[in-house]
């Protein structure tokens, strides 16, 4: 059995997550991926913003940085630019990462700075009690959308791809094996990589949206996830209401810190 405790700050438990929350499942996937890649704990900086997902860094024995709401990628850019040799991983949520932090999200992707962002997409602001977020599906209920959301939602992975990310993948809290594999690929990828993980929030989302138990929410993920390969053979009608999973985008583009190092070598010593 995998020994998670080697990566955890056991004294900081119990964690703050609700019973049935999927955030811990993502943390397990991340720790397994890091272990598989044999990255030293001293060489990892785990950065977050504000929200339930952003509490992840506190529980793990890396260099951990819990920043202001939406700003994790900005702080992480400073860390990575200063120390390109460190592995920088950002954990964020849909509100933190794509609403208040939306500007940093598109620019980190555009810059293609070498870091991995794990976006916990639970379609809701969980920590503050269930307000509507940029990924809340149209029609879904939230405390600030009591009659159902009337706004279109972001497709987070499409946003990352369009903004310039090198690697984009999507998985769910149900698909734990795939999740670990995608994390490994994302961390190894040079450039900005983003893994969107659809995750259940039974407390703030499920109970308002006819998914009353964590199991019901996980079953919904299982039933609506379509692997990218399978999706290629399906019609738009067949794909309606579903979402694709797996590696959605993987290209090689110049990476920011390498470009900067080239600049340094080019102008070094000039006066």
């Amino acid at each position: 059995m995998f020994d998670y405790s080697q990566y955890l700050r056991i004294s900081k438990f119990p964690h703050i997550w609700c019973p049935g929350c999927g955030d811990g499942t993502i943390l397990k996937g991340l720790l397994r991926a890091i272990h598989q890649l044999a990255i030293q704990k001293d060489d990892i900086v785990l950065v977050s913003g504000i929200g339930c997902s952003s509490r992840t860094p506190g529980y793990v024995d890396f260099n951990t940085l819990h920043t202001t709401h939406g700003r994790a990628l900005a702080f992480a850019t400073g860390v990575k630019h200063a120390r390109p040799d460190l592995h920088v991983i950002v954990v964020s949520g849909d509100g933190d990462g794509t609403a208040i932090g939306g500007n940093h999200f598109i620019h980190a992707a555009r810059r293609n700075i070498d870091m991995t962002m794990i976006l916990f997409n639970n379609f809701i602001y969980g920590m503050t009690g269930g307000q509507v977020s940029p990924t809340t599906p149209m029609g879904a209920y939230a405390s600030t959308a009591p009659y159902g959301s009337i706004e279109p939602n972001f497709n987070v992975s499409e946003l990352a791809r369009a903004a310039g990310a090198s690697f984009v993948a999507r998985t769910t809290a149900y698909h734990t094996t795939q999740m670990q594999q995608l994390f490994e690929k994302a961390i190894q990828k040079k450039g900005f990589s983003m893994v969107e993980v659809i995750v259940q929030c039974p407390t703030a989302y499920g109970r308002r949206n006819n998914q009353r138990t964590p199991v019901a929410m996980l079953n919904w993920m299982k039933d609506h996830a379509v692997p990218v390969k399978a999706a290629e053979k399906m019609t738009p009608e067949q794909l309606d209401g579903k979402f694709t999973t797996g590696v959605l985008w993987d290209i090689d583009r110049p990476e920011y810190t390498e470009q900067y190092q080239r600049l340094v070598e080019k102008v070094a010593g000039d006066r």
């Binding site: 950065v47 990628l73 900005a74 992480a76 850019t77 200063a82 940093h104 600049l263 340094v264 070094a268």
Partner: peptide, 28 residues
Amino acid sequence: PKIGGRFIQMEDEIAAMGAIIGASLTGF
């Protein structure tokens, strides 16, 4: 860049402040 230091123009003022805090935490 000539002396091996780091310069970056960020996407906004908030990000610039965040980036220097991140860099300071690495000892800069």
